[in-house]
Design a protein around this nucleic acid. Structure first.
Lengths: 239, 239
DNA sequence: CGCGTTCTTGACTAGAATCAATGCATGTGG
DNA sequence: CCACATGCATTGATTCTAGTCAAGAACGCG
């Protein structure tokens, strides 16, 4: 029996990378097991170290993944956009969540208990392969970020991070591309492994040069090609 | 028909994380498809950017995974020990190898064409789950390394890296624990995102303090607890 | 024994962290 | 509506970590 909620959920699931390309039988098996959840902006879905029991797919909203160091310093691992999976990494292993997940906008999720998702994957191996594929992609992405952090200077990293965020949450405005989420200097610092002071200086410099526009927790990229030049450390053409 | 080679391979496979805990049926299905390979020390198994066609499991020896930056700077992602998988990340996706794999000791591998391993996983879903689990673990490890790189100072990172290497390739000697592989200052620098000069200075300091012994491409940890103190940035107890 | 690598050390520099003071919004409550 | 508290951002002064460059020493190999 398929009710209206199911139809909506089905359409959304079919979009999510994990389920896209899967047989509809998989979707129909998955939907009855799904737990819909809603969180307001600024609430925690789970904390680093909590036993991992549920795997989520983000329907709407935006989620930030962070880790804490032993000294209490925070690092932002990444932001998630609708369709992306959350906790897929550990839903299959018997460990704890390695990151903290916090909403930065009102957010709706679909959750599955790890036993259920495991069962689904055993029943539909193609779903397991899809999951493998998904993590593989994320893994490669994380490796790239690692390499950047190891070899590039702060300014390059900030530029690259802005470009990544544009791809993820960019929205065209009349003056440029707005990164459509609250984004403080501190956030950028935690993403690039630096301090909020350094980020502030860099952004000020870029704003002076007309590359970006900033205001409180907000960045608009005006000359993205110039930001690319900085990110890639290309020789800048003179006037 | 099981010949002697098969028996040996079976025993080895049963040890490898990907196959451990799997039904023997899986092993028996996997073995006939395996391509045994041997490489001398210092040869390349594949290069970053090559189309990913084969997935390997390391039987003996040691392999180094590296990435190159656009500027030609090299970063060492990690070293692999026997039993670990190589290219598992991409064997399932239709991409290219994201890293270069180079042997640092004479090495024997078992390889599977990605179509074969995919087929196996579809046939034995538990194998896919095992693979998922494996990548998940690596992923969490990489996240931790990322966080270290983002927040810790060079000295801490070098300490941590040495401890990791000890766990992976440590061999007790009369003066301490030897990291049993060729390991230049340059290598350590590429692992920690610094320069060989800085590494050299740090190791010299530690050697003076009696924490380690070094020689060309070799490190012996004598006082591992003191290295831990540095890695964890604990307050050092005075005399 | 000479050659190429690897390693060490010193001098210098630059990039970025730290500390401190202040400005600027935004939202709150009297 | 204004005074105030709070959180975010800017900027300058200073310090220091680590990178860069250069010269030479030590080691291992053919």
């Amino acid at each position: 029996m398929i009710d209206r909620w199911d139809v909506t959920a089905l359409a959304l699931l079919a979009q999510a990378p994990l389920f896209s390309g899967q047989d509809t039988a998989v979707l129909h098996a998955a939907i009855p097991l799904a737990q819909p959840r809603s969180y307001e902006r600024g609430t925690f879905i789970f904390h680093e170290g909590d036993p991992a029991t549920i795997f989520y797919i983000l329907q709407t909203g935006r989620v930030r993944l962070t880790q804490l160091t032993a000294e209490g310093q925070q690092v932002i691992i990444r932001y998630l956009s609708p369709g992306e999976g959350l906790g897929i990494i550990v839903a299959l292993s018997d460990t704890t969540y390695p990151v903290t997940a916090e909403t930065v906008a009102d957010t709706q999720l679909l959750g599955w208990y790890k036993e259920d998702i495991k069962q689904l994957m055993l029943q539909y191996p193609s779903l397991a392969l899809s999951g493998l594929n998904l993590i593989a992609r994320r893994f490669v992405g994380l490796q790239a970020q690692f390499r950047e952090l190891a070899t590039e200077r702060v300014e390059q990293r900030v530029a690259r991070t802005l470009l990544r965020l544009v791809r993820q949450a960019g929205r065209r405005t009349d003056t440029g591309v707005l990164i459509d989420m609250p984004l403080s200097r501190q956030d950028l610092a935690e993403m690039t492994g630096t301090t909020l002071y350094t980020v502030s200086r860099i952004l000020s410099k870029w704003e002076q040069a007309g590359l970006i526009q900033t205001s409180r927790e907000q960045v608009i990229i005006c000359q993205s090609h110039e930001i690319v030049v900085i990110a890639e450390d290309l020789p800048k053409r003179d006037a």
